[in-house]
């Protein structure tokens, strides 16, 4: 009898693969990224060179930071759909205020709506327990309204992209995009915060089992409010970076990044139900999506087709992760 108990159970290949995927989600993701780059190289021989890599990084970085907002909010079982509006507001306010104001003042003015929207989101989700999706969608509608009103007041003064944002958005240093100067500290900070600080662990705790977290003395609304303010601030900074990259202030500047940012976090292995995931996977997810977008552009897939594909990716990846968790 003891023999049977100690004998190792034969594990099927499928189960082993699933467990491997669940324990080390980064490895299959990196393999997928390499496969995509290889396909690109086959379709357009010679496209993969230093300039292409720098360019890909430049476009992946704003997406990766916004996906960071999604990662952190998704860890608590939430989502932040207002990041696009917040980024657009910051970028637009920066570009129009820099004309008459000191850069530091313009920067503060640009960050103000980000903090306010984050605060409203946090209070709505944390105190009133509105579903984050509805709440952030609502604040993003209100934000867009404010932006339209604001646009009228500055229509005479015009807009300008400050030089340092130009440098940050498109400049290269020794072949490396300058945006890395912003991204590397941000990424290190997020990873450090999620893994090594009390606040980061609280995010996992709240997302994993909200009731248990509350019962063990976590002040839910404070954690959530801080989280959404942080997410909004990051989105605002991304907006500044993005305007340096795109160089055309408009009222829908960062809106196209919202869906991919959700998709990047989901692909990166962060569970949309909370409690599982991390930022390193998200970064790879953002790279995958950027390369995929290039690939789809080369294949001449229209914008609509791309959105359809992203939607199905989110759905199938979520379903797949659900199966993996159930099996454990």
């Amino acid at each position: 009898m003891t023999d049977i108990a100690t004998m190792p159970q034969p594990v099927s290949f499928g189960r082993r693969l699933k467990r491997f995927m669940a324990d080390r989600p980064l490895i299959p993701l990196i393999i997928l990224l390499i496969v995509l780059v290889a396909i690109l190289q086959v379709l357009r021989p010679g496209i993969v060179n230093e300039r292409w890599i720098a360019n890909t990084a430049k476009f992946a970085i704003p997406l990766a930071i916004l996906a960071g907002c999604q990662t952190m909010t998704m860890l608590t079982g939430g989502i932040d759909l207002s990041v696009g509006t917040v980024a657009t507001m910051s970028a637009f306010i920066m570009a129009t205020q820099i004309v008459n104001q000191d850069p530091a003042v313009a920067f503060l003015l640009a960050m103000l709506p980000a903090v306010l929207i984050g605060l409203v989101n946090g209070i709505g989700v944390g105190v009133f327990l509105v579903h984050p999706l509805i709440m952030t969608l609502g604040t993003s509608l209100i934000g867009t309204g404010f932006l339209q009103v604001y646009q009228r007041t500055v229509i005479a003064s015009g807009a300008r992209i400050p030089d340092f944002l130009n440098w940050l958005g498109t400049g290269l240093t020794y072949g490396f995009p300058n945006a890395l100067f912003l991204f590397v500290p941000v990424a290190v900070l997020i990873v450090f915060m999620l893994n090594r600080t009390g606040f980061g662990r609280l995010l996992y705790a709240v997302g994993d089992n909200e009731r248990a977290a509350r019962l063990s003395g976590v002040r839910y609304w404070q954690v959530i409010t801080a989280l959404y303010v942080l997410s909004s601030l990051l989105a605002g900074i991304t907006g500044l970076l993005y305007i340096g990259l795109i160089k055309a202030p408009s009222l829908s500047l960062a809106e196209p990044l919202v869906l991919p940012s959700v998709a990047a976090a989901v692909i990166g292995g962060t569970s949309i139900f909370g409690g599982r995931g991390g930022y390193t996977g998200t970064i790879v997810g953002a790279l995958i999506l950027t390369v995929l977008t290039t690939l789809l552009t080369i294949l001449q897939m229209p914008e609509g087709g791309r959105r359809i594909l992203f939607g199905f990716i989110v759905l199938f990846v979520t379903a797949a992760y659900l199966r993996i968790i159930e099996d454990r």
Partner: peptide, 17 residues
């Protein structure tokens, strides 16, 4: 909420097509 969010992307894309 996740399924209909994904379908939101899909239907939006289809509308553009």
């Amino acid at each position: 909420i996740v399924v209909t969010l994904a379908m939101l992307f899909v239907l939006q894309g289809a509308a553009l097509l």
